[in-house]
Simulated scan of single mutants.
Amino acid sequence: MGCLGSAFSALRYGAVLCACNMMLAGAAAAETVTVAALGDSLTQGYGLPPEDGFVPQMEAWLRDRGADVEMINAGVSGDTTAGGLSRVEWTLTPEVDAMIVALGGNDFLRGVDPAVSRANLDGILKAAEDKGVKVLLVGMIASSNYGAEFKQAFDAMYPELAEAYGVPLYDAFFEGLEVGEDTAGAARRLMQPDGIHPNGEGVALIVEAMGPSVLALVESVE
């Protein structure tokens, strides 16, 4: 092969090598999984320093366990399932690979008909399904303030929707705060003075309990 041919081969090899390197770099960059946390004040981190909120603590927990993940705080204080439904389309931007849906607490506090809350959650899950975004649905447990029928319908909508859409369910946002018989003591120690929102220590326990489910969500992203 002459000099010209050798030069051409070298250039062609260099171009192929460059293209391969670019593809590898792109693949490496694509490994980061972006998770949006769609929720209310519990997700948003109401009353807490930014670093103590649910999203920063969950992101740190996941990274400590080797997950290449970036979390987006899509929590809005006071939001209901209706608010989540109104925001879901612009929350599901092209870079979002997975989504935690943690809504319904404010619906219960306002006595919203569970059928309405269920329809809103259904719309959120449908939007995620249409975009091929993986979802972890986080449930809430109602008290009996509005009667047994309301509680039954409210509590049931989460497992029923999770089954209908084939998405994993984390039973209750506050599950990590179960402390046996010391309910009153836990409320004082792990909650803010309003008795509704967890403090930083409470969030850490919530994250520790929910973390494995979120890690499974991240790992399910292809």
Rank of each mutant, 00 (worst) to 15 (best):
M1I: 06
G2W: 02
G5E: 11
G5A: 15
C20S: 13
M23R: 12
A29E: 06
A29S: 11
T32Y: 01
V33N: 04
T34C: 12
T34F: 07
V35T: 10
S41P: 12
L42C: 05
T43C: 12
G47K: 05
G47E: 02
P49L: 10
P50H: 01
D52M: 14
G53T: 02
F54I: 03
V55G: 07
Q57H: 08
Q57K: 14
A60V: 02
G66K: 01
A67E: 12
E70Y: 04
A74G: 07
S77A: 14
D79H: 11
A82G: 14
G83F: 12
S86F: 07
P94T: 06
V96L: 07
A102E: 13
L103T: 04
G105W: 02
N106Y: 01
D107G: 08
F108M: 09
V112C: 10
V116E: 11
V116P: 08
I124E: 04
A127K: 08
K134H: 13
L137T: 07
G139D: 07
M140N: 03
I141Y: 10
A142I: 07
S143G: 15
S144W: 03
F150D: 00
Q152V: 05
A153W: 01
M157E: 00
M157V: 04
Y158H: 05
L161H: 08
E163W: 03
A164P: 10
E178D: 14
E181W: 01
E181G: 11
T183S: 14
A184C: 03
R188P: 00
P193E: 03
G195T: 02
E201N: 09
E201M: 10
G202K: 09
M210K: 12
S213Q: 11
V214E: 01
L217S: 05
